[in-house]
């Protein structure tokens, strides 16, 4: 693209962006790297491949994956309903979507634990009808992470649906496409990159979530102990190197994940641009 000769402000805008990014995000994060350098490679590997650490990685990643998948499904339905349909109280429901951003995670944890505890409103219902205990089991982590993830999915899919050009649907319909075909061949591919982003953001956020999870997880080692809790545990034992080693590994995974997603998005954008 040979745009931009005429557009002003490239240097100041990019300069400010990079400086501010460095000050607020990169320099602070780099302390993690430097702190981990105090460990030898072998020590580092020994810490992150400790079976307890691996088990907590499994718990965190599995829970975040399941939660992001569930939240993505419901998030798309919610976004679809909010954009395409009209019904009573829509504006209120619409405003409610961002509640998980605003509610402190600790409050979310306390509230969800109250609702899903075995004697709680939903906890009791689930216990009596299907015999499943949610709070203080790994399932509790999933519930907390779904709550945290909702706005990420809805708010990335919603704008795309809003912008979506309905004339494409009309054209397809005039060529005799059925509703199912229109959705699967036209609408879905267009919102898919957004769903992917929402999913990735939810997942990345879920892996690191602490505040809400510890109230509802049960925190039993090998079963419901999440990575951030292990980091806190290391900190409480004055083991800064151990804590930063685990934190760094999490950071690298998150970074790679986000990077891949951004590339995927770029690719999807280019491909849809060619269509």
């Amino acid at each position: 693209m040979s745009q931009s000769n005429i557009m002003p402000g490239f240097k100041p805008a990019l300069g400010f962006t990079v400086v501010y990014l460095s000050l607020v995000v990169l320099i602070p994060l780099s302390t993690l790297v430097f702190n981990s350098f105090q460990l030898s490679w072998d020590d580092y590997v020994a810490i992150i491949t400790h079976k307890r650490v691996l088990a907590s990685f499994r718990v965190s990643f599995m829970a975040a994956l399941i939660a992001a998948a569930i939240a993505s499904f419901f998030g798309v339905v919610v976004a679809w309903v909010l954009v395409r349909y009209t019904f009573a109280g829509k504006r209120f429901f619409h405003a409610l979507i961002d509640l998980p951003f605003a509610l402190p995670t600790a409050v979310a944890g306390i509230v969800l634990a109250t609702i899903f505890q075995p004697s709680g409103f939903l906890g009791k219902l689930l216990m009596d009808t299907v015999g499943v205990q949610v709070a203080f089991k790994p399932l509790g982590i999933v519930v907390a992470l779904i709550f945290i993830s909702i706005p990420f999915v809805v708010r990335t899919v919603e704008p795309v649906l809003l912008e979506f050009d309905t004339s494409m649907e009309e054209a397809a319909a005039s060529m005799g496409a059925s509703r199912v075909q229109i959705f699967s061949k036209i609408i879905f591919p267009n919102i898919f990159p957004a769903i992917l982003t929402g999913f990735a953001l939810s997942f990345a956020r879920g892996v690191g979530e602490y505040g809400s999870v510890i109230f509802i997880a049960g925190n039993i080692p090998y079963v419901s102990e999440v990575v951030p809790l292990l980091i806190v545990t290391k900190l409480e034992q004055y083991d800064m190197e151990g804590a930063t080693a685990i934190a760094l590994s999490m950071l690298v995974v998150s970074f790679l994940l986000l990077f891949v997603i951004n590339l995927l998005q770029l690719w999807a954008r280019k491909r849809s641009g060619q269509l």
């Binding site: 634990a113 109250t114 505890q117 075995p118 004697s119 709680g120 709070a135 203080f136 510890i214 109230f215 049960g218 925190n219 039993i220 080692p221 809790l229 806190v232």
Partner: peptide
């Protein structure tokens, strides 16, 4: 036999009293 391992004493009290665990 531990049903929950809270991170602090107050957390445990809450689990026992409020959560009825």
């Amino acid at each position: 036999n531990a049903a929950v391992l809270d991170t602090g004493a107050r957390g445990s009290t809450t689990s026992f009293v409020e959560r009825e665990i």
